[in-house]
Structures are given as structure tokens and as C-alpha cells.
């Protein structure tokens, strides 16, 4: 196979684009996709303080690398989840990457800083660990950005992540979730601006980027995510993609271009008030994170 751009030997074939690329032009392709995403949704501008949500996996490290390569000022924030045999290794990858590129990595450890781990929270709430994990990370990234003056939080959600979430939202006709699903969420009182610059790139592309750029990342899947619904959606979409290349992109991009606006939330506005524990706006007496924390901590003390 030959590179579409230079006709040199290709190292990756992207059936969705009906294209093959050599290392140099594949990296240029990734840069261009991120550049287009940032520009299309006016995600941030040069000079903005960008906080990258870093997990030690391929997506977040590739995202951080691409943003720095494109000239943005970006620091990383890693959240320690306390998952045995997984969290230590993923933090190691994040720290090694930051040191190699001389970048700033902040670390918030759930156990040390907030008094519980994800496995403990899952046990206390008797719910899937992925729920406690996502809720905790969202809270910590948001609070950290607000408390430390960052203009925007960037997450490594890629095209596969977004297509899988869209499939789940459509299967359940979750209209509120459909209205919220977007690559750029504006800042609001108590909420930092939040964007997904990788939404135009698939996770195979992000893994390839890391291999080519010699970025070592956490390859093995989180042991607590095994069998979750999100992974099943991805497998189903990849089965479709195999038969019909471009299906995932058509599904997601078509939604964003032609359907998202129809799901804009209407109806009565729910009054929000600051959570007494953390100050995050909430419709109830206590925000979801503080409720999780309150239930998780007694189990361990």
C-alpha cells in the first residue's frame, strides 16, 4: 500500500477515508482533523489556558500531544481512581509522557484528596463502577478548571466514543442526553467550558498515532469496564463499519449537522442552587458527586 499523499510506503489504511498514509502524512492527517474540530466549534483560541483530562490511555495522551504540537498551551490533570493493578500503571504512563515533553501534569487522587476510591464507591452505591468513575472524574475536572483559572477542559472522547454514546441515546430515546451530546459545551455558572477535539478521529487512529509517535500508554482495558454496555455498542458499530466503511462518521456527523438542533431542550427550566458541599449548581439538596462521596466514605471509615 502507498501513502495517498507522497506515494511512499503506507503504515496505516483508513477505509473510512479510502486512504493509506505513511507516518509523516498520517500525523499531518491527525493534526488537520483536530484543527478542523477546534475551528468548526470555536473550541478555544491560542493563548487560552487549556486543561487536558489525562487518563494515561491512548486518547488523552494523543490529544495532549496534538494540542501541544498545534501550539496550544495545555496542562494535564490525572485523577487517581484507586483501581488495583490499573491506576498505578496509568499514572506512570501519564507522568512519563509529561516528563518526556516537559509538560505540567496535575494529579488529584480520589483516595488521598477526597476520601474514597472508585471500587469503594461502586460497592457503597451497588452500582456499576463506570458510573462512579465517570461522575467522579467529571466533578474533579470541572472543579479543578474553575478553581485554577483554566479556560476550557479538553477530553479525549473520539469518534467511536461519541458514535457509541449516540447509539445508546437513540436506542433509549434519551432526549435530554441527545440535547447534551455535543463536541463543545459552553461555560455556565459553576461549569467550565468543555470540548472534545478528537471527535473527528477514530480510536484506531489514536492508537496508531501513539504507536507512531512512540507514546507509551495503558493498553490493557480497565478491569472494571469489562462487559459494560458502552463497549457492546462500539462492537456493534464496528461490525457495521466493517461492512460499510464510513458508517460511524456518517451517523455522528449527520447527527451533529442535521439532527442535534431538533433535540434542544425545551420545557420548564429547572431551578439550580449551589450544592452546600462543593458549590456546584444542582437541582436537588446535594449534587450527585457529594451524594456519592457521602455514601462511599462511611464504608471505608
Amino acid at each position: 500500500m502507498k501513502c495517498r499523499v507522497c506515494r511512499g510506503p503506507a503504515v496505516i489504511d483508513l477505509r473510512r477515508h479510502n486512504a493509506n498514509f505513511c507516518p509523516e502524512h498520517f500525523v499531518a492527517h491527525c493534526e488537520e482533523q483536530v484543527r478542523r474540530a477546534v475551528r468548526h466549534f470555536a473550541m478555544f483560541e491560542p493563548g487560552d489556558r487549556v486543561l487536558v483530562a489525562v487518563s494515561g490511555g491512548k486518547d488523552s495522551l494523543a490529544l495532549w500531544d496534538l494540542l501541544v504540537r498545534l501550539g496550544y498551551t495545555a496542562d494535564g490533570l490525572y485523577v487517581g481512581l484507586g483501581i488495583d493493578g490499573y491506576s498505578d500503571e496509568s499514572l506512570g504512563h501519564a507522568r512519563a509522557y509529561a516528563a518526556r515533553r516537559d509538560l505540567t501534569l496535575h494529579v488529584v487522587d480520589l483516595a488521598t484528596d477526597l476520601g474514597f476510591t472508585v471500587p469503594e464507591a461502586a460497592t457503597a452505591t451497588r452500582r456499576a463502577p463506570c458510573g462512579a468513575c465517570g461522575l467522579s472524574k467529571r466533578h474533579v475536572f470541572n472543579r479543578y478548571a474553575l478553581d485554577h483559572g483554566y479556560d476550557v477542559v479538553c477530553t479525549g472522547h473520539n469518534l467511536d466514543d461519541e458514535a457509541a454514546v449516540l447509539l445508546g441515546n437513540v436506542l433509549h430515546w434519551d432526549l435530554d442526553a441527545l440535547a447534551r451530546q455535543h463536541p463543545a459545551l459552553p461555560a455556565a455558572p459553576g461549569f467550565a467550558r468543555k470540548v472534545k477535539p478528537l471527535y473527528r478521529l477514530g480510536e484506531r487512529e489514536m492508537a496508531a498515532y501513539c504507536v507512531l509517535e512512540r507514546i507509551h500508554y495503558q493498553v490493557d482495558e480497565c478491569p472494571m469496564a469489562t462487559g459494560n454496555r458502552h463497549l457492546a455498542y462500539k462492537e456493534s458499530l464496528n461490525a457495521l463499519e466493517l461492512r460499510s466503511p464510513g458508517s460511524k462518521a456518517a451517523f455522528l456527523f449527520g447527527y451533529l449537522e442535521r439532527a442535534h438542533g431538533t433535540f434542544t431542550r425545551g420545557g420548564p427550566t429547572v431551578a439550580l442552587q449551589p450544592c452546600p458541599g462543593c458549590g456546584t449548581p444542582t437541582p436537588g439538596d446535594e449534587c450527585a458527586f457529594c451524594r456519592l462521596q457521602r455514601r462511599a466514605i462511611p464504608v471505608t471509615s
Binding site: 458510573g131 442526553a177 462500539k234
Partner: peptide, 9 residues
């Protein structure tokens, strides 16, 4: 290359 977990943030 598939990773998953908390889904959409």
C-alpha cells in the same frame, strides 16, 4: 484499540 468505561462525560 477499543476502550470504554464511563462513556460520555
Amino acid at each position: 484499540v477499543i476502550s470504554g468505561g464511563a462513556g460520555n462525560a
